[in-house]
Design a binder for these strands. Sequence first.
DNA 1: TGTAAAATGTTGCAAATGCAACAAAATAAA
DNA 2: TTTATTTTGTTGCATTTGCAACATTTTACA
Lengths: 209, 209
Amino acid sequence: MTNLFENINDKNIEKLKRILKANTIKYPKNVNILSNVKRDDFIALVDTGTVQLERSDYDGNTTIIDTISQGEIFGSLTSSIKNEEVSCITKEETQITFIEYNQITNDEIIKTDSYILFIKNLIKLLSEQVSIKNSRIELLTQKTTRDKLLEYFKLQAGPIRNKSFTIPITFTELANYLSVDRSAMTREINYLKEEGFIKTNGRKITLLY
Amino acid sequence: MTNLFENINDKNIEKLKRILKANTIKYPKNVNILSNVKRDDFIALVDTGTVQLERSDYDGNTTIIDTISQGEIFGSLTSSIKNEEVSCITKEETQITFIEYNQITNDEIIKTDSYILFIKNLIKLLSEQVSIKNSRIELLTQKTTRDKLLEYFKLQAGPIRNKSFTIPITFTELANYLSVDRSAMTREINYLKEEGFIKTNGRKITLLY
DNA sequence: TGTAAAATGTTGCAAATGCAACAAAATAAA
DNA sequence: TTTATTTTGTTGCATTTGCAACATTTTACA
């Protein structure tokens, strides 16, 4: 995962942030951060912590559209956060740096030495975001819960196909990520165990195929 | 939808393409274009036509991961096209311009007048890609076929909430996009009609609520 | 350390959905 | 225009899944 300021030294990072008029804000846990920022188009970098984009349906159900972790970016151009049904909630204490979209090409910044590096990082970061979305779409388009699980396990096993790995989120979160009922997912995991496809120990999964 | 060369005149577009070492190739219908390009990281711009990223499962089923239309971009950083299960197929005669990722910040290009405009367009285009993915994820995370359809109709109706609109794809493609069985989707549309939620006439949908 | 909150495990049941297997209509191609 | 291909429509049936309603375990935090 690329860092927005990768290969740029601290002094130049400070300079870039100043010229970009970057605005860094610290939020406590469980607050909606977008009441502040529904003005111009912006890019938000999660310095530390986690935020979630959630949609509350008419019937009170909450769907997690996106989880943005440390180092990742989101923004008004990439999310439907101007939609009144969508809220952006901090899941822990979180620090965010806001950069207005129009500042990214302001007159002063384009003369700055580390600008090209910054731009290259930003493009890579955005590309990675698209890639992350594509992965989730690949999971979500699987027809059955079993297929979703097996595809998720395959991704977690990585290109080297490790037989054992520990999933980095809770099963509750995984069910949400795969958009399936948690209890039905547990049931399916049990079937997979009974049929000898996998072994589990807490969040550690071992593939037997 | 942003165009990669928006606000840049033809002469400067040619100049940019030359300095970026952009490579424009024309393909006939129904060919796999990625046999050519599995080398360095690249960005591909669809000048004209349509390409689809498809994954063929072990059981022969084909899932459409992504449809890239005229003016949109895709690439090795945004898609799992290096995965051997994924192929990239032209759906009609298609012209594509390839730009190597490393050329985007080459020594000569960053001195070019229209470079900043180009970069800004590229960032906007990538942001829009993320946004498009988010929309689809919002649809795919709906629990029922009915909810998927109603959410899709809501998106098609637009922010002004037009009561009538014509869906821009076939029902077969829509079922694929929503990742539901086509016949089951037809059945659900019939229920929606019977219950007085919608009227249809071919691909024209009228919302009655 | 004790208590509250979150995560996990389990199961019956009704509802939703995929699948198969067609026929018919509409488009595209030769 | 004729033929081939794609899209659309329909339905029975088995399976999958969501949902509700719990008990239990683990984790967070005051």
